[in-house]
Design a protein around this nucleic acid. Structure first.
Lengths: 182, 182
DNA sequence: GTCTATAAGGGGATAGAC
DNA sequence: GTCTATCCCCTTATAGAC
């Protein structure tokens, strides 16, 4: 009989360690050997839980990506304001999609995962929600700038507060991002 | 007698090709073999011009980094406005420091180059210029958000206009970034 | 579930001929 | 300046014992 509890918790530990290392060193520059070392086992043991390095990346990003797509869907409904969109973006970046935000600038992740999942297209849909129908170039620029402001603001706030997004900081970020939009 | 003209132009071609590949695939995921292939020579030939892969990265980033530091110095002078800083940032991102902007999100570059050169500290100095003395957390957040808005806005404008920053786009980006700051 | 050992391949870099 | 051939290390991944 398989020890399910151990399997699950080891799997979770692998994901935690990998999230950490991928985030700080990048996906491509992190080796299975490094993960195994932090895990305290051999590389082969790790391959019992994940059949490839890419599968670890998938496991780390699939949930955040689904959360992000759900959010994107909610933004296309009628009566959604810019405040809803940018506020939702902040909350996503601080919570369910934080891993996505941390990894998506890594070229090795872009190559191995983001291209395959059309991440770029998903972000573009959000830009369209903010810029409105038949947007001018100026609208597109300020929409993208506002999203960048929200993302960077959230990242900064999390850094300054041990990974916690305070109500105050959230309000500051949202206000700044809304100003960006104009 | 060494053929200096050929040496120089080959060196330049290597840098152009590397800038391209590093930008699209990331530094760590780009191999010397790939560069040599696009160059149309062997790997060994490439090593005649650069003694290591890291030296190529250095050659690509040193000038942009100096330009960025010069700009940062100019921002600490008295009487410099937020408009000067954000406008200068846009111009730097669109011109002399564009390579820096394109590479600095790559974790493999951060590890091999940015840490060694304290890039993070340099950006922080700019943040301080924008946030003012003894800044509140809100000031820091909006300063960082404004810089992110300027960077992303510039990137977007360049994408939409074949790498050219039009006067109009520059004005739009600057206005958006200034609004972000509040 | 975890181990040791090893396969199979790619990476950066060098030697020495031309 | 460029070539072929090669070295050596590190990487992902697997085989098979325990």
């Amino acid at each position: 009989m398989i020890d399910e509890k151990t399997a699950v918790s080891t799997r979770t530990r692998i994901l935690d360690i990998s999230r950490d290392l991928f985030g700080s060193q990048g996906y491509g520059s992190t080796s299975i050997a490094q993960i195994a070392e932090k895990l305290g086992t051999s590389k082969a043991a790790l391959y019992y839980h994940f059949k490839s390095k890419e599968e670890i990346l998938d496991a780390l990003l699939n949930e955040p990506f689904e959360a992000m797509k759900d959010f994107r869907d909610s933004c296309t409904k009628p009566g959604v304001s810019a405040e809803d969109i940018l506020g939702g973006l902040i909350d996503a970046m601080a919570g369910p999609a934080s891993c996505l935000a941390a990894f998506e600038t890594d070229p090795s992740v872009l190559q191995e995962w983001a291209d395959r999942h059309d991440l770029h297209k998903e972000w573009d849909k959000l830009v369209s929600c903010l810029a409105g129908p038949r947007p001018t170039q100026g609208k597109i620029i300020s929409a993208r700038a506002a999203m960048a402001a929200a993302k960077q603001g959230t990242k900064t706030a999390l850094e300054l507060n041990d990974g916690k997004l305070t109500k105050n900081a959230r309000a500051e970020i949202l206000a700044a991002a809304l100003r960006t939009l104009g």
